[in-house]
């Protein structure tokens, strides 16, 4: 097998890496936003539940959550496909971290602006959508980039549940070709490239929506 062939197999795996990363980021954004907004309602029992969720998902290793979902849930009659298992583990872990980022960012919204909106006669939901969320997302940019990077870096563990992403392809290639050194070096560089591209895309979006006077928190 030529090195070019090896590279082309790895790049094919990169498609799955990007799929897993993207699916988990979306899960994280959705669950993190939901948790942060539910926190905002400030309902006691709900707050405890949300605290428990964020604490557990930030404190338990990814692989344990992943195995719990992928190997544990089928034992009570809930078979979970690999990609969904990644979303329910890595995606929700990302969501738990993001909800903390979002909560911090919501606190950075100037209460005076919320009061002005109230005094104009705006509804709670209108204020949330027109004032709080747009500002919160901008304040959260650095934290979001951090979490997205983490998702990419943990995406290789999808191979443990059978997703044919980069690491899975690399492992079988290394076994058949016995050229582990070059292969894993290429894999490292490939991940780094994906990371760089992802970061550039994120920074591009951030610049596009940038507004003067927003200090990053």
């Amino acid at each position: 097998m030529t090195f070019l062939e090896i590279i082309s197999i790895l790049v094919r795996g990169a498609g799955f890496t990007i799929l897993v990363t993207f699916a988990c980021i979306l899960t994280g954004l959705f669950s993190g936003l939901l948790a942060a907004l539910l926190f905002r309602l400030d309902i006691r029992p709900l707050n405890w539940l949300l605290h428990a969720f964020t604490y557990a998902f930030r404190g338990i290793p990814l692989l344990v959550v992943l195995f719990l979902v992928f190997f544990g849930l089928p034992s009570i009659g809930l078979p979970i496909p690999p990609l969904l298992a990644m979303m329910l583990s890595l995606g929700l872990i990302c969501g738990a971290y993001l909800s903390e980022v979002f909560r911090g960012a919501l606190k950075a919204v100037d209460p005076n602006e919320i009061m002005v909106a109230q005094s104009m006669g705006m509804h709670r939901i209108q204020i949330l959508i027109s004032i709080e969320i747009p500002q919160m997302l901008r304040f959260s940019a650095p934290g979001m980039l951090n979490e997205f990077t983490t998702v990419l870096k943990y995406s290789p563990f999808a191979y443990t549940v059978g997703v044919p992403e980069i690491l899975k392809e690399a492992t079988s290639l290394a076994l058949t070709t016995l050229r582990g050194m070059e292969i894993y070096l290429a894999v490292g560089i490939l991940y780094f490239l994906i990371y760089k591209i992802m970061m550039e895309m994120f920074l591009w979006v951030e610049r596009h929506y940038a507004i003067p006077g927003f200090k990053q928190i």
Binding site: D110, V116, S119, F214
Partner: peptide, 30 residues
């Protein structure tokens, strides 16, 4: 409240909106 204009001490302009958008927000949403 929509019939009472309120101008605050610290202006409290919406920081994520331009001057024009600040004025437009109430006209559009309310």
């Amino acid at each position: 409240r929509q019939r009472i204009g309120f101008v605050f001490q610290n202006f409290a302009l919406y920081r994520h909106l331009s001057a024009l958008e600040n004025v437009k927000l109430g006209l559009r949403k309310l």
